[in-house]
Structures are given as structure tokens and as C-alpha cells.
Design a protein around this nucleic acid. Structure first.
Lengths: 188, 188
DNA sequence: CTCTAAAGCTAATACCGTTAGCTTTAGAGC
DNA sequence: GCTCTAAAGCTAACGGTATTAGCTTTAGAG
């Protein structure tokens, strides 16, 4: 029997494939092992267990989102940067609904996710730096941005908008709402 | 051995106690059975299984939230009603963080949750009726309200705001942001 | 060609959900 | 007060899961 040649990265990639195929709740060591063609206990040679695998998956997703965010704001600033940042993050969540759902509710509570989580928030902070908000106003602006993007992505990625109206339009309203808030905060 | 005298309602109440005590992920038939002092299979006399129990718990939580929302807007209207509605729902989520996390990502997809979910959305719609938004504008306003309340509650209930700034202030900013949006939508 | 570290395996344990079938209790009806 | 029945609860058993322990084998270094 030839060897599979696994490593931690390959296991995480397979886990993401399982999440994409069967949903976040179906991520199990047995399903990942079956996908890569290996007995379940063999995965412990590369991964500490199911909890750690979940954490590694979340870390991968957070890094992807941070990359998306970075690419979105590159070469842009102000309202343009904020708009594209919001749209691109929403786009990622909708393109990979199961991956978004695979993220734990408390990413900052997991030390393994602190770096990736901080990278994403860092892009938020850098993007908002253009508005020169001072002290706590900057913190609140970052939080409001998180609330809107997460709230919308969370609902849309689980098909929570039942009515016929386009979610695109709703999201445009939210962007306008947030930009108005930024402009207003800037004047104080 | 005396009889426990259970019924569906008592089982759901015990399940909520488990959720409050150990978190939403720890909701298991075995833990509920242990709490009420009964063997695990006995629960099947009152509940269809773990999936149904989860659904019943979510239904209870949704109804509680609908009650909170109804009480909040009773005797109020306009900005006052919207403000108190948002604050009270946030208050519920923070007071019962595990219950909020016990809700599935897609409540409307579960037929058993349709009524309670509709009741909560109905309170939103009724509260916004004061602004006389026409057609799709009303839908978008409801959605934006959902996004903000859910996004904030989701993050705060999982201790997602790490910085020292008070989440109260952040939420006040979001309320102001949303009210401005409503006033602006009203003029069109 | 040999030897070692790691990759993979099987076996075994513990916990969970679920089903089947049995026992017993509480209460309805006489 | 007695009986009888429907339901509440139990034990036993099965399958699936994570996890640990210990063995076997492979790939690659020397």
C-alpha cells in the first residue's frame, strides 16, 4: 500500500473541501480521513485532534479573508476603499457560505486565531485611518464596520433573506449608511 | 423508583438550563437526561431526538425574543420605539449569550421555527410602519435593522469586542446610524 | 545496503444518539 | 377500593465518533 504523503497543510485543505461539500457541521475526522484515503487515527500524525483541526480551518479562512480585504483596499482610499472592502468581504462569505459558518463565534478567544484575526482587523483599521478619527472614535468605527459586514454576511450566507428584494440593494443601503456615519464622525 | 413526570416543555426547559450552564455546543441528550434524573432513551418519549430538541430550544428562544421585542415597542413609536427595541434585543442577547448562540444560522429554513421567526420580524415591520416606507424600501429597512442587531449581538455575546471602549457607546453609534438612515429613506 | 524516524495501520476504549422491547407506574373507569 | 390500560421509564444493543496505545512498514539519510 503506497503512502499518502500527507502533512498538516494537506489535511487542512481536505477539511476545507469537506466543509465546502457537506457543510461546517459535517467536518469530522472520519470524513476527512475518508477523503484523503487514510484511516482516521492516522490523521493524529499531522493534527492534534478535531478541535485543533477546526481551529486550523478557521485560521485558514481568516487568512483568506484578510487576503481578500488587503487586495480590496490596495491602491484605494477613503469611501472607495471602504466600499470595495465591504463588497469583497461580503462576496467571499457568499461564495463560501460553509467556510464562513465554520468560523467559531469567538475567534479572538482562540490563541491560534489571534494573528489572522488581528490581520483582518488591521486592514479595517488601516482603511479607516484616512478619516483621521481620534481615540475611541476610531475604535467605534472599526466595530461598526465589523458589525455590518459580519451581520450581513452571516444572514446572507445562511439564506436568511427570504423576500424577493435583492440583497445587493440592501447591502448598498448599508454601505451608504456606514459612509454617512463616517463622514459625520469626521466632522466632530 | 418514583416517576419524573416529564413532558416536552419540561425537557426543553432543562435543555435551556444546560445551554445556559455549559454552552450551546454542550447541549446533548445525555446531559439533559442527567439533569432531569432520567435515562437518555427516556427522553424520546417526549422529544423526537437531538435535532428536534435543538429546534424546540431555538423556538423557545425566538419566542422569548419576540416577547422582548413586543414589550419594548408597546406604547412607543418612531425613533423612541426603534431605539428601545434595539436596546432590549441586545440586552437579551447579552444576558443569555449561550441561548443566542444556540440558534441555528438559518432559522427560517426550519419549518418549526417559521412562526416564531415570523413573529419577531413582524414586530420589526410594525415598528417601522411609522416611517411609512413604500414597497421595497420597507423591506430593506427591516433587513438593515436585522443586520445591525444580529451582527452586534452575535459579536458581543461571544465577547468579540476586545478593546477597552464600552460596547454601549458602539451600540449607541449604531442606533444613531440607523435612525439617520431611516430619516433619509423617509424623505424619498 | 542498512538503519531509523515517521507515516500509516489495527485494536481497543469511551461517549454519544438511536432503536427495540420489557417493566412499572399513574390514573381512568367501574 | 380494584382492575386495567396507556404511557413513562428502564435495560440491552448497535452504529458512529474521537482518542489512545502499540505495531508494522515505508521512505529517505548515510
Amino acid at each position: 500500500m503506497p503512502r499518502a504523503g500527507l502533512n498538516e497543510e494537506a489535511v487542512v485543505t481536505a477539511a476545507l473541501a469537506v466543509v465546502d461539500r457537506d457543510g461546517a457541521a459535517a467536518l469530522t475526522l472520519a470524513s476527512v480521513a475518508a477523503l484523503v484515503g487514510v484511516a482516521t487515527p492516522s490523521l493524529y500524525k499531522h493534527v492534534g485532534g478535531l478541535a485543533e483541526l477546526r481551529s486550523l480551518v478557521a485560521n485558514r479562512v481568516l487568512r483568506e479573508m484578510a487576503d481578500v480585504a488587503t487586495a480590496a483596499v490596495l491602491g484605494r482610499s477613503g469611501d472607495d476603499a471602504v466600499t470595495v472592502l465591504m463588497r469583497q468581504l461580503r462576496h467571499y462569505a457568499v461564495e463560501h457560505p460553509a467556510r464562513y459558518a465554520a468560523m467559531p463565534a469567538d475567534p479572538q478567544h482562540d490563541p491560534a486565531l489571534a494573528n489572522a484575526s488581528g490581520a483582518l482587523i488591521g486592514v479595517f483599521a488601516a482603511t479607516l485611518r484616512h478619516y483621521a478619527l481620534e481615540g475611541s472614535a476610531a475604535i467605534h468605527a472599526i466595530r461598526c464596520l465589523r458589525v455590518i459586514v459580519h451581520g450581513f454576511s452571516s444572514i446572507e450566507s445562511s439564506a436568511g433573506f427570504g423576500m424577493a428584494e435583492s440583497p445587493d440593494d440592501t447591502f448598498s443601503h448599508l454601505i451608504e449608511m456606514y459612509l454617512s456615519y463616517l463622514h459625520n464622525a469626521q466632522e466632530q
